[in-house]
Design a protein around this nucleic acid. Structure first.
Lengths: 122, 122
DNA sequence: AGGTGTAGGTAGATGCCCTACATACCAAAT
DNA sequence: ATTTGGTATGTAGGGCATCTACCTACACCT
């Protein structure tokens, strides 16, 4: 048994290229550590968007490398250590840019999905 | 000089995973050949979504392999030969499925981008 | 003869996201 | 007491869609 790698990518949970924006946006509400971030995204999206750890942590490292987030270790006296991320100034700018790209693209896709044939009737 | 592969993927034109849906949707208006398809998508999206041939033709072959579109060669007496694609029954079903996934995901993303904090006020 | 637009196509690279696995700590259940 | 389960961070390897860059071929115009 144990179907080997069945059903990969039939239905991706997250649209490729949007995870960074989701993380940046969530961090704008305030600093958070990775695990809390993933739960926030899951909750705020109504349990639709589920971020796997194998996507989350590489994404955070990526964002850190690009200077859009910064992080500090916080060794809480109870429980495992936390790495708390916060938006940088560049990150806020990037978030705006990605939001506008998202708006542009979803509008464009909507233009395909629900076309209106008339160019008159402003 | 000749900067080797500069600026790849700073801003993708098309969200990964949506091209198939765009093609299927466009084919629902009627059979088209590849090149016309790419122009239709470009036009209908207000010049936002630009489909490169290196994405388009592999996508069409992919869709054909999956049985969502079918095609015939049409050797027009004037100009180069055309490969005209049309939606299959399975393709129409697939289109509905991808549209619903798109709606679900964009709603979820909107939930992140524009959150409302109250759960009262049904 | 060369340029432009139409039309179809491939090769190679990039890199995001996924599955699967690993570690470590802690609390509660058996 | 040990096992389960939740929290928390992480890596390894793979799939695959899209992009850049290139190719052929035909027709028309200059």
């Amino acid at each position: 048994m144990t179907p080997p790698r069945e059903r990969y990518r039939d239905q991706l949970e997250i649209l490729q290229g949007t995870l960074d924006m989701l993380i940046l946006q969530t961090l704008q509400w305030g600093p958070r550590h990775g695990y809390a971030l993933s739960k926030a995204i899951r909750t705020q999206s109504g349990e639709i968007l589920r971020v796997d750890t194998g996507s989350l942590y590489p994404a955070l490292h990526r964002l850190e490398r690009k200077g859009w987030v910064a992080a500090e270790w916080k060794s809480s006296e109870v429980g495992p250590r936390l790495r708390v991320y916060h938006l940088t100034r560049a990150g806020k700018k990037q978030l705006l840019s990605e939001r506008s790209r998202w708006a542009r693209l979803t509008e464009a896709v909507a233009g395909i999905l629900n076309p209106q044939k008339k160019e008159s009737e402003s």
